[in-house]
Amino acid sequence: MFELIKRPILTFQGFVLLSVRALRGIFQKPYYWDDLFLQMDSLGIGSLPVVILTGFFAGCIMALQMARALQTYGATSQVGQLVAITLVREMGPVLTALMVAGRNASGMASELGSMKVTEQIDAMRALGTDPILKLVKPRLIATAILLPLLTILADFIGMIGGWMVSCVMLSLTTSAHYWNTAWRILEYNDLAQGLIKPFVFAIVIALVGCFYGMEAKGGTQGVGLATTRAVVVASVWIVVLTFIIGRVFVSL
């Protein structure tokens, strides 16, 4: 019984240790600015196409599905509100985070995993560099800055998608009414929720991706396993945290 739970406990302990060192490292010198900008470019610019496409079609689907339900009650003019609330509160942060987890947590795990199994991380430590500060910190900061920005973009593009379906395709309401209701329904609580979520998800994505990369062992097979685990664990945590953060905001 003890053997069964020993490995998950050790893994969690390793994750907590790495997280503490990485978060403390944010305030420690040196800062590797080149690595930070490289990561921001890879994560921010590199994720734009997938985030735009996902956001756009999420908005389209929302409007399409809501149209039928709203027609039943003769409330099709409210489609803008529904698209805006759902996107800003839940769909935007979660879908963007899942896309970035799939793209970047896997990238971090495979990159760091390859470095680990080819002794590059040991070499880094032997040559005077703390891998936490050089490898984990730039990825953590880049993700924490860019995921909220990508989420804002996905929310906006999603609303455009919703507008196209509801106003251009199905003529459910006028453009002015759509944008007016979408704008008016959003409260500070929604915006806070919509920005805190991606910030928390970003920390989880970066730390999980880096942790599984740094723990990789056993050659290329180990790197593949680390990559898979990073994506699965990060995705599950995103869904779990969505519920927890949502619950906190509902009770506020």
């Binding site: 470095m115 080819t118 002794e119 590059q120 040991d122 070499a123 880094m124 430590r125 032997a126 040559l127 005077g128 703390d130």
Partner: peptide, 23 residues
């Protein structure tokens, strides 16, 4: 501590099994 080791490692040269070069 790891920081103390960084100073000590500055006095040691090491060649890893596969070279350990940064690709």
């Amino acid at each position: 501590s790891e920081r103390e080791w960084f100073d000590i490692r500055s006095r040691i040269g090491v060649l890893f099994q596969e070279g350990g070069l940064f690709d």
